[in-house]
Amino acid sequence: MRRFSPAFLIPALIAAPALGHAGLVDLILGKRDLEVITVTDLSSTGNFVPAATPDQPQYYVAASLGYRDLGGYMAGIEAPPSEVVLHLISAELAKQGYVPSTAHSPAPTLMLVYTWGTLNAENLYGGDPSAPPTQLNRGQIVRFLGGQKVGMDDNFFNPLTAPVRGLTVYNFEAERILDVARESFYVIVVSAYDLESALQKKRLPPLWTTRIAAPSLGFAMGDVFPAMLAIGGAQFGRETPRPVWINANDKFTPSVTLGELRLVEYLQDNPLPVADVSDAVIEKK
């Protein structure tokens, strides 16, 4: 992954984020490869639930939490319509064997919850314009990217217990995650809950949660979501011992653009039975 952070470019990229995702970044950095990082965590209960397959599907009802800015806020990001994102997520789930419940299907056993949006680096700039900013949420991004699976637990960013950099030897994967965590990301999160327990309002952790992330600089959200799902969807419901890090080259990208039949053929054209609970969550907060 290329690194480029001259101080004179920071004001331009902040003042024009929409341009930064397209022409300006390509002009300065050249075209970047799309990198997708996927992490799936299983709970103790989820370890006893096998992942779905096309031959042995699992049926679900779903709720959408909608678009979220999970990290710092950045103006100018154009999110694709919710119905487009929901169809992409549902189509990839169906490809992996997770099928929305209907009146004619077997009874559902899962409740799936979706959310997507950004996980932007939150930087604090001091009075010296030549000094690098202080990133306030690097630990949050490291955890999202699966840092705990490569040796960085919650104590890693605790000032009382964190190891001193330079005296500690990190493994390659930890170094890589720590390095890329300086960037901002587009993210998709799918969590699966036991439906019966959810209906009984039992407070149990999800059976599994899959987090898909891709660095956002140089890309438009609507352009990369299909590729993120096509790459990361294979990990739905499947524990990842390490973060799965895949570089999508130019030959791969065109096969997962919006409207590609292979992404939608697993679902019929009927409206998706996904409850939108995003407004309820916002009001509760």
Rank of each mutant, 00 (worst) to 15 (best):
Q96R: 13
A18E: 12
D41R: 04
S44P: 01
A16V: 03
I37Q: 02
P81W: 05
V85D: 00
S43L: 13
S90F: 06
I28H: 11
V84P: 01
A18C: 04
L34F: 04
V85Q: 00
A94T: 10
T53L: 07
S44I: 11
Y60T: 07
P57W: 09
I37G: 01
I37F: 07
P81I: 04
S82W: 02
G76C: 03
I77R: 02
N47G: 02
L29C: 13
M74S: 04
L42P: 10
A79W: 09
G71T: 09
L86F: 04
I89W: 00
A63H: 10
A79P: 10
V49G: 03
T40L: 07
P57E: 10
L93P: 04
P80L: 12
I77E: 10
T45V: 06
E83F: 12
Q56D: 08
L42R: 15
V36G: 00
F48M: 07
P80Q: 06
T53M: 04
S90R: 03
R68K: 14
K31T: 13
G71S: 11
F48N: 13
A16L: 08
N47R: 11
E92L: 00
H21F: 13
S43W: 09
L88T: 01
S44A: 14
Q56T: 14
Y73R: 12
I28E: 11
A51I: 08
Y59T: 09
E83D: 15
A94V: 09
Y59K: 09
S90Y: 03
A16E: 06
Q96T: 11
L88S: 01
A22R: 15
L24Y: 12
A52H: 05
E35H: 09
G23W: 15
E83I: 08
T45K: 10
A16P: 00
G97S: 06
Y60H: 15
P54Y: 04
S64G: 08
F48Q: 11
Q96L: 08
A63D: 10
P54L: 08
I77S: 02
A16M: 07
L34R: 05
H21K: 11
L34K: 02
P50S: 05
L29A: 15
T53R: 10
T40Q: 04
G20D: 08
D26W: 15
E35L: 07
G20N: 12
A91C: 14
V84E: 14
S64N: 14
D33P: 00
L93Y: 03
S44H: 09
L86I: 01
P81Q: 12
F48C: 02
S64V: 07
R68E: 07
M74F: 00
G71R: 12
P54R: 05
E35C: 05
G76V: 00
Q58R: 15
E35F: 03
P54A: 04
A62L: 06
P17L: 05
A62R: 05
Y73F: 13
